[in-house]
Write a protein that binds this DNA or RNA. Structure first.
Ligand code: MN
Ligand code: MN
Ligand code: ZN
Ligand code: ZN
Lengths: 127, 127
DNA sequence: AAATTAACGCAACTTAGTTGCAAAAATAAT
DNA sequence: ATTATTTTTGCAACTAAGTTGCGTTAATTT
């Protein structure tokens, strides 16, 4: 299902992604908008935005769903197989616009990879 | 909490890991032993085995917990930061004893990585 | 055999995510 | 501008994974 109408709710969520560079967990988004919209709505808007190639999703280290803005994706053509970074101190999650070469393993046919790097972000190193 | 007693239940779960090379999801284990032990027991035994360095855990692509036998780990000294492989066709998950060099990113301090490769396993390619 | 400790079962709970359906809002048709 | 159609939303109920508290059982010590 694609986006038929750009509603107030959709624009609210969209603007969050446009204003900050980091990824957002669905849990945080549901919480952030808990006074404005139902959690089902949040899930459905994220689904629509992903189908449109506006945002992409991935699974964080604790198994939660995360979303982040896409850079060069279009409808049904996601090409963001980039690694992600998670700060162990502040919990921040970021997309890494960085090519990691996926090794080909004996006898297997590998076509994608989810790579999550963990450590300290720039801000947290200083502290 | 470490292992104080090697019970029947613990040995049953342990032997599963010793008999097959692949990783196992907790969901599958709970199901496999549903007639023999409570799911809480399964979770707790896995926790103990992990603390002992007998098995290690990781999060699969759907956010589920997976466990696999450790190769060279000891109590509180896990060094299995290896990538994992998930077959999109049959669902099999395997540890890859393979070094992937973790890139150092500008300003960040990266100390670990979860890498999940996806594709077709050797068996499923043939079909 | 009695006391202590570790492991287990069970039920109840939490949290993330999903589904069905009716109501509301937006768009299109008349 | 009404009316009809379609899309979006809220709500409540549900599923599934994982956790917690507590009383009971089982293993180990004394
Ligand atoms: Mn990303
Ligand atoms: Mn492994
Ligand atoms: Zn940080
Ligand atoms: Zn396979």
């Amino acid at each position: 299902m694609s986006i038929k109408r750009k509603t107030k709710s959709l624009n609210a969520i969209l603007s969050v992604f446009e204003q900050r560079e980091e990824a957002l967990s669905v849990v945080d988004l549901v919480d952030e908008f808990k006074d404005d919209m139902n959690k089902t709505t949040v899930y459905r808007i994220l689904e629509r935005l992903e189908n449109e190639g506006v945002i992409h999703s991935f699974t964080g280290s604790k198994g939660l769903m995360w979303y982040a803005k896409c850079q060069t994706c279009t409808t049904h053509h996601h090409h963001d197989v980039h690694p992600h970074f998670e700060c162990k101190d502040c919990g921040k999650v970021e997309c890494l616009e960085l090519e990691i070469e996926i090794p080909q393993i004996n006898n297997r046919h590998i076509d994608s990879a989810s790579i999550m790097l963990q450590g300290q972000c720039a801000d947290c190193i200083k502290k």
